[in-house]
Design a protein around this nucleic acid. Structure first.
Lengths: 205, 205
DNA sequence: GTAGAATTTGAACAGTGTTCAATAGAAAAA
DNA sequence: TTTTTCTATTGAACACTGTTCAAATTCTAC
């Protein structure tokens, strides 16, 4: 006979359940007992598979970065035209954030001093999503035959812009009279029309 | 004789103590018992002066908006040159956020669905800080003799940009090799060099 | 079957937001 | 002055939180 869908307790299932609860509850409201109830086990079992709540969240943070980086890497490989690529990278970021708000919250809005130490190597993986943009900026400047002295800085500016859009939208702070699509579309246009020749300040160190 | 510095229990003192604790602890770690200990009273006393934790935080949110709006209104009145004014408004926002991280967190990063209902009129006061920017954008476009079809939308874009810079900095996500001053200075330059003639999408509603 | 390891449990501890009857203090009325 | 009334404060209680841990259970290998 066919194997019944086992509901065994394992890290994978705990992560999936946690992610689902995170969407509804947010990190603050989320509790270990909630997760245990949803998984159908005791609190101790959660602590057997994960050292504590922080480590459980860190595992999800890593998953989120893996997905985002995979998405951006694929786009970098697929789109050769620099302008289209830069535009697509921005769109990807926006789409990723809006369709995975639970990932985005824990990936980008947590203040490190209030979480248990998140190993530095994982933040380095996160940085790859900025470096993809940095390379696109460089390629775009070559295409436009302009000189961008600090593409890595410009990549950070683009990141800040996108992050601001995403978080203010998710915090419901944008005036109802303004369409999300108007914001993201106009923003990407502005990014592509950056006054690239403006010499930024030295980026230090 | 001079009146001794009374340490009586009143809403003002509770708010001040809460704000100080917020800087160190953040909203999540902050507890009513903490506040009571710092004020030197029982938990019940806090609940006598404020209905609950949310209302206490809401009072601080309002204070924060009052300060920011006062700052921006003063700048609008003081600086007539549109370009300088727009630049100053951006700088103000950045400085306000970095020197009042506790205010900024509760004012702009909380998701409304996870807080008790924050009265709509108070959000309307918050909107004034965007409207000041919107007026500056309009004036700047007249100065530059360009046409900005949707200054309110552009004001939102500027807000998003600034918000992204501030929150990524406060979350310690910006690469150490990039100086904060390089980011904010380059950003303001880019804002002042906006390709103003680019027609944004309709802003809807 | 049995030894041993892997897994699960539920009680316990100190902390959280919140409520509330009891109390104290001050002001007003008698 | 005494009594009443209102304001302010207290601390115990409730259900919740993250976390630990000895005990109980289940699984694996021999």
């Amino acid at each position: 006979m066919a194997t019944l869908p086992k509901t065994e307790i394992n890290p994978r299932r705990i992560l999936d359940v946690t992610r689902a609860l995170l969407v509804q509850q947010g990190l603050t409201q989320l509790s270990i007992r909630m997760i245990a109830r949803a998984v159908g086990c005791s609190v101790g079992s959660i602590y057997f598979h994960f050292k504590n709540k922080d480590e459980l969240i860190h595992a999800l943070i890593e998953e989120g970065f893996d997905k985002l980086v995979a998405l951006q890497d694929a786009t970098e490989a697929a789109i050769t035209d620099p302008r289209s690529r830069l535009s697509a990278l921005c769109r990807n970021y926006y789409n990723f954030a809006l369709s995975n708000p639970e990932y985005y919250e824990i990936m980008f809005t947590l203040k490190p001093e209030r979480m248990a130490r998140y190993p530095a190597e994982k933040y380095r993986k996160a940085r790859r999503s900025v470096e993809v943009v940095s390379r696109a900026v460089e390629a775009y400047s070559r295409q436009q035959k302009t000189d961008i002295p600090h593409p890595y800085l410009v990549a950070h500016l683009i990141w800040c812009f996108m992050h601001g859009i995403v978080t203010l939208m998710q915090a419901r702070r944008i005036d109802r009279s303004i369409l999300p699509e108007a914001i993201i579309e106009t923003s990407i246009q502005q990014i592509l029309n950056l006054n690239l020749s403006t010499p930024p300040l030295p980026s230090g160190g």
